[in-house]
Design a protein around this nucleic acid. Structure first.
Length: 361
DNA sequence: AATGCGTGGAG
DNA sequence: TCTCCAAGCAT
């Protein structure tokens, strides 16, 4: 391949056919680019769009984010998944502000910040500073593995490192900042629109003439990626303590593991424990057993069993760490300024269906 | 190095 | 319903 042939082709294609109107484009503000890159980790564009807008409205700049409470940051991430992203995002904002509010100007320095790995660092550096470093996200992996007929198993780190070196070698060392940004966006756009996982549109691809995978008729089998381990099944019993006014008790989950730091009903791991009347509930009461909720994560298949108990009117609040009673998820909470709450997606769904309707909703 | 971490879209 | 996996990172 001619040196820089692919680079030039991709830049030209991106400028004419790529995406230009996503809300995080048309800016070199590292805050906005950074936020978009974190949200887009393992998450599709369409999913991110509403979250990005709401988040930016509430936290319009770095210092606004740094000053916020972690709970509120998590609440704005609620439903987006991979919640450690939100905690790292917040930690990163606080560190940057503490150090004067300046962004590091290179990918190597960006990568030292919490939540920013090699690909995200390269994306920020390329978009904001025009640095000549390559991303290697899922789009780029698939696209470059085909372009180069790359054999390695991308489930393994050594193969990924080799592909990254080859990705770096495709860059034009003389490229301007603008072209570097267009090229980086081009990798993402070509991967998302043309070089798709299934049924890639090779006839429409600007790089078809350069594509070794296409020449060898091996596009369909690239990239090579070994299977993941199967999902384990788990049963969780959700302890739904219901007060006379309809409110449900939620407590903050531990700082590690699934839904770390989010609010959810207390979880029990055996049926026996779940069917015993907990403290604060009248002895002899029979719980309401709600239909099971199936919720699958990447590595686990959860079967959630909601078990509802009537909370005694005169009982003190349940202990065991920070928690709160939730009446409704609607916006206009009466007395206090309504704090949005960080809920796992299936818990939010259940509460929406089972809490009293929000006033005015 | 291998594993854990969410959710929803697409086929 | 099932599989795959999306602008990956931390440990």
């Amino acid at each position: 391949m001619e040196p820089a042939a692919f680079f030039d082709t991709l830049v030209a294609w991106q400028r004419r056919h790529g995406r230009h109107h996503l809300p995080w484009q048309g800016t070199r503000d590292p805050y906005r680019v950074w936020l978009s890159e974190i949200m887009l980790q393992q998450t599709q564009v369409a999913t991110v769009l509403p979250y990005y807008q709401r988040f930016l409205q509430r936290f319009p700049h770095l210092s606004a984010l740094a000053q916020a409470e972690t709970d509120e940051v998590l609440a704005h991430w609620s439903g987006l998944g991979y919640y450690s992203r939100a905690r790292h995002l917040h930690a990163c904002a606080r560190r940057l502000v503490q150090q004067g509010g300046y962004w590091p100007g290179t990918a190597a320095e960006l990568q030292r910040l919490p939540g920013i790995g090699a690909s995200t660092a390269a994306a920020i550096a390329a978009f904001c500073f025009g640095e000549r470093v390559s991303i290697l996200d899922g789009n780029a992996q698939r696209l470059l593995a085909r372009l180069l007929a790359f054999e390695g198993d991308l489930a393994h780190a050594p193969a990924k490192r080799v592909l990254w070196q080859r990705a770096q070698a495709l860059l034009d060392p003389q490229a301007s900042a603008d072209r570097m940004a267009a090229y980086t966006q081009g990798l993402m756009d070509l991967g998302a629109q043309i070089c798709t996982r299934s049924r890639p549109r090779c006839p429409e691809c600007p790089a078809a003439a350069l594509c070794q995978g296409l020449a060898q008729q091996r596009v369909a089998e690239l990239p090579q990626k070994s299977r993941r381990s199967p999902r384990r099944q788990e049963d969780w019993w959700l302890l739904l303590l219901r007060r006379a006014d309809g409110a449900i008790w939620l407590q903050q989950r531990p700082p590690r593991g699934i839904w770390a730091g989010l609010y959810a009903p207390p979880v029990l791991h055996t049926e026996q424990a779940a069917l015993q009347a907990p403290p604060g509930v009248c002895v002899g009461q029979t719980p309401i057993l709600h239909p099971v909720i199936r919720h699958s994560l990447t590595h686990r298949e959860l079967r959630l069993h909601p078990v509802q108990w009537q909370w005694a009117a005169d009982a003190p609040d349940p202990a065991a760490g920070p928690g709160r009673w939730v009446h409704t998820l609607g916006k206009p909470q009466q007395h206090p300024a309504h704090q949005p709450i960080a809920l796992p997606a299936p818990i939010r769904v259940w509460l929406l269906e089972n809490l009293p309707p929000a006033p005015g909703a």
